[in-house]
């Protein structure tokens, strides 16, 4: 064998062997790698969705999607995964139900819940990109295992029990949390989220609308939010109709009174 022969043989044998072995190497792993990779990216979608949910949804749907009674439904309940689609007469999948509701909001209100589901999808004027909506849906769907599997039964929303002998202020404070006021107006003493902050409301209320006392003003703002709109909300000028109009009928007169009295303590 001379030099050329050796080179040709080595070259060709190397190339063929290499191509064959490497492709086989990859091919051997592909059937396992693809599903593993898919699980990896599905998991990342859940992680992303959790971040987005935390930042945008807990105000109304509660921490861990437990829901806030009277404000917005729980998303981690068995009912949500088993009967909700039938109730509303939706024929698509659970995922498309969630995605379309997040995207386009709820065109029809429900008497049960006071908060309005906003249009979150970018194509409907909201802030979320399509991939983000899809990630949120992945996160919500990830509750299905615990909700339907039995472990998550305890995660049903339970209204904070209000002691029957509570003073009006205590009653109002409990309502502020349980009716989801904090979802938009922020925790007492903190900054507002969508609506104006309630910090110092007692000191401002008396002078906001001429001729109205502080109590009258607060009362009217709860039962008829559009009567007077303060100019500045955290996200820009306050919009009419943003705050649910139904608190007047949802709350009993005693509850309304308690809420007003509680707010009057926030100086």
């Amino acid at each position: 064998m001379n030099n050329t022969m050796i080179k040709i043989t080595t070259g060709i044998v190397t190339m063929l062997l290499m191509a064959g072995i490497f492709v086989l190497f990859v091919a051997r792993d592909e059937p396992n790698r693809l599903p593993a990779k898919e699980a990896d990216f599905s998991a990342r979608a859940v992680e992303n969705g959790a971040m987005i949910f935390e930042a945008n949804c807990v105000g109304c749907h509660g921490v861990q999607g437990k829901g806030i009674p009277g404000v917005a439904p729980a998303l981690n309940s068995p009912e949500f995964f088993t009967t909700r689609l039938q109730e509303v007469g939706y024929v698509g999948s659970q995922r498309t139900f969630i995605e379309s509701t997040v995207n386009a909001g709820r065109p029809v209100g429900s008497g049960q819940y006071s908060a309005v589901m906003a249009t979150w999808g970018q194509q409907y004027g909201g802030p979320l990109r399509p991939d983000q909506v899809s990630d949120v849906a992945s996160f919500i769907l990830n509750w299905e295992a615990t909700a339907v599997g039995g472990e998550g039964q305890a995660a049903q929303p339970t209204p904070t029990p209000i002691p029957s002998d509570a003073s009006p202020v205590e009653l109002g404070q409990a309502l502020y949390t349980s009716k989801g006021c904090a979802g938009c107006h922020g925790e007492p003493g903190g900054a507002g989220i969508v609506g104006p902050s309630m910090t110092g409301i007692a000191s401002r209320a008396g002078s906001t609308v001429p001729g109205q006392s502080a109590e009258e003003y607060i009362h009217e703002s709860i039962v008829n939010p559009n009567a007077y709109l303060v100019p500045e909300c955290p996200t820009g000028p306050c919009a009419a109709g943003l705050m649910p109009q139904t608190f007047g009928t949802l709350l009993s007169p005693a509850e309304l009174d308690g809420l007003v009295q509680y707010l009057m303590t926030l100086e």
Partner: peptide
Amino acid sequence: PDIFTDEMVFLGLVTFILLA
């Protein structure tokens, strides 16, 4: 044949290294 085979062996080795 000299340079041609040289080049082929060279590129074969480079491909080998890349894939490895």
